[in-house]
Design a protein around this nucleic acid. Structure first.
Lengths: 219, 219
DNA sequence: GGACAGACTTGAACATGTTCAAAACCAAGT
DNA sequence: ACTTGGTTTTGAACATGTTCAAGTCTGTCC
């Protein structure tokens, strides 16, 4: 069922391409496995030989989206932006990657959230690395005290943003864009102010929350 | 399909009871509509006469949960607690209400989030009222500047908590309890510190985010 | 070349959510 | 009692996700 073997993994691609095309045109629910099989010119059972389920097809897409995001965001992080700009870059890349799939947003979300296999862990690791780079490339550098926690925090914020996007029915997801800008501004301000004890305490609370949330994936 | 008619709405109850029992015993997916029909001693088609779909059965349960939460929390808000305690009371009531349903948490969540009919709006209104009362009954009173926004903020935090709970696999949801305590502490501290301009700016950002999120339900 | 083992593919069967036309039921009016 | 109009109930049919036993293809070993 995996790509461990030879070029019959081209079949996987054919199926996935057909699925993508139909998902985009008709949405997730309206697309039947039989339609996918027909579109790709293969048999129904064959699709199930290569993909465990209809949802599994979506997982594949979701994984590709993370790659898109990383590919789009990374080159724009080099120039020594400030933190807010860098956050904006990464969040925008996430929304760009996900934009064509608004038709079946909720399904995509469920796929991203509720999965706990190795593939999902790998995707998450790549996203974490991206956030670490975004923080590390920022000038002026965020305060040391918060620098290590920031990627975690931002990753969580991104997840919240994508959930929001999935249920955002505004034209072109304009509200999600605005939310992304808000988040970037908020996070940058929080980072700067984390030197103040009062703010620091709040941040500690938030970090505590984040660590709690993080632990979900391990349990 | 609604309760607008006479006692044949007892049938609705029979179906819903059977569904609840089976959902609790076997989980959402493993419970088939035929099993529900059999358990309630009625026919399959009858279930579909009273409920539009299998998910619709869950919506009914979700609505009842909100009632449970309100019923449990309200009496404990009278005594002039401080804000943190009141927040904790409401969040704990939410977790208590939802606790027996951990088996099909994600389904419950999807039901709560992605619905946009009148019934869902009514449930949300009742939750809002509860949060308004929690804020209003707190001594010392939260700063006026934030008092109006706090219920909105807390409602959002609760939604986040419940999402977390749905995917929290720790024993007895102990992590969700801890998260609730963290949230209560965080929110109370935020309220107190909202007088400081620096904190106030951060809060404004967050409120902006919340208003954005809110607008989902209207669009 | 032929037999073998394994991956790949297929079509039919199965399970379950959903729909529908018809039957049963029920209250009201005559 | 009979008709009538509406609601409720039923069982069969349908659509679609999923599984399976059996074919087919492909490369390897003798």
């Amino acid at each position: 069922m995996d790509t461990k073997t030879e070029k019959s993994a081209a079949t996987r691609q054919r199926i996935q391409n057909a699925a993508l095309q139909l998902f985009l045109r008709d949405g997730y629910r309206a697309t039947t496995m039989r339609a996918i099989a027909a579109e790709s010119g293969l048999s129904l059972g064959n699709a199930y030989y290569h993909f465990a389920s209809k949802e599994d097809l979506v997982h594949g897409l979701a994984r590709a989206l993370v790659d898109d995001q990383v590919r789009a965001a990374r080159p724009r992080l080099r120039s020594g932006n400030n933190l807010q700009d860098n956050i904006q870059v990464v969040l925008d890349a996430a929304l760009d990657a996900v934009a064509p799939f608004h038709g079946f947003g909720p399904v995509l979300i469920r796929s991203a959230i509720s999965r706990d296999d190795e593939a999902a862990a790998a995707s998450k690791a790549r996203e974490f690395a991206l956030w670490r780079q975004a923080v590390g490339a920022s000038l002026p550098r965020p305060p040391a005290a918060i620098r290590d926690d920031l990627p975690e925090l931002l990753w969580l914020a991104q997840r919240g943003l994508v959930i929001f996007w999935a249920y955002d029915s505004s034209a072109d997801g304009i509200r999600s864009r605005r939310l992304a800008a808000n988040i970037a501004s908020l996070m940058a301000r929080l980072a700067v102010l984390s030197r103040l004890p009062v703010v620091r305490h709040i941040i500690d609370d938030v970090i505590g929350v984040v660590r709690n949330v993080e632990r979900v994936d391990r349990a």
